[in-house]
């Protein structure tokens, strides 16, 4: 009996390993064809390093007109992010099992991670805002990770997107701060722990810092993602030259691993900063 069960387990792992290998092979073939179709061929034997073309926003179905409602590559990759979120959180939890399976465990893990973050950083009274924070985290983490698929488009590498996200947080938090505390919210800028003479000066600095928040909040995310993708593209361009190709590919692998970390880390940083700002709005007194 025992040997039989081990055998089944082995065949199962072997089966899933085979599936993964097949998927990887299919991805490789698709990417190879994409590469043949793309404009990667160096012209005149020179290196063609164009790290910025990956960030271009273009209409999905041809044409040059990019009006605000035209489906573009932004639409495509945001749609894939929505599908991924739905796959994880809706399909994954379909069983509603008390003893979760793999996908449900993942969904519960993400839920628990963000929920605990909101509760620990911003406090229990911030939990009503948990759905929006969870939404932002999911969008950013999925957009970042999906952006690491070769030939994909990274929606979070654009200032327009991250500034919108950051301004949403900034404006909401400011409104919540005034709605919950009234004028008392301004005590956030009045450091009672500092000597009285210094307080006006510090208040000015605090106000400037407060308005710098959305800038750093948004630039941190899109800067990290865009820079990482540009660096990867540069390495990929150098891989076209036979002499330094091994070095470039090794560098590419290393940078890719780093970018995977950055993708998740930046989503985490954006979310935890949102929680910190929310905490300031709910409890402005230092």
């Amino acid at each position: 009996m025992a040997t039989e069960s081990t055998n089944t387990a082995e065949t199962q792992t072997g089966g899933s390993g085979k599936t993964i290998a097949l998927v990887l092979a299919a991805v490789a073939v698709v990417l190879f064809i994409l590469g043949l179709m793309g404009d990667y061929a160096p012209e005149g034997g020179g290196l063609s390093i164009d790290p910025m073309s990956q960030f271009e926003v273009s209409p999905l179905f041809g044409g040059d007109e990019l009006s605000w409602f035209v489906p573009s590559n932004v639409t495509l990759w945001m749609g894939i992010a929505i599908a991924a979120v739905a796959a994880l959180l809706v399909m994954g939890t379909r069983g509603r099992a008390v003893i979760p399976g793999r996908s449900q465990s993942m969904a519960e893990l993400v839920y628990g991670f963000v929920h605990k973050m909101v509760e620990d950083v911003a406090g229990k009274d911030a939990l009503p805002y948990f759905p929006y924070i969870f939404t932002a985290f999911l969008y950013i983490v999925f957009a970042n990770v999906l952006g690491l698929i070769p030939a994909s488009f990274t929606t979070t590498s654009h200032a327009a997107v991250t500034v919108t996200l950051a301004l949403t947080v900034f404006i909401s938090v400011t409104v919540i701060g005034f709605a919950k505390n009234g004028v008392g919210f301004l005590s956030l800028f009045w450091l009672t722990s500092a000597p009285l003479i210094l307080r006006p000066v510090l208040a000015v600095i605090e106000v400037i810092l407060y308005f710098a928040r959305p800038v750093s909040h948004s630039v941190r995310l899109f800067g990290a993602i865009a820079a990482g993708h540009a660096v990867m593209k540069v390495f990929a361009g150098f891989a076209g030259a036979a002499l330094i190709a091994p070095l470039a590919i090794a560098g590419m692998v290393a940078i890719y691993a780093l970018e995977l970390l950055v993708a998740v880390l930046q989503a985490y940083v954006f979310t935890i900063l949102t929680c910190v700002y929310l905490k300031d709005a709910l409890h402005p007194h230092h």
């Binding site: 009006s67 605000w68 409602f69 573009s72 932004v74 654009h158 327009a160 997107v161």
Partner: peptide
């Protein structure tokens, strides 16, 4: 490209 991105 901003309006398009922000809308989507």
């Amino acid at each position: 490209s901003f309006p398009n991105q922000i809308f989507w």
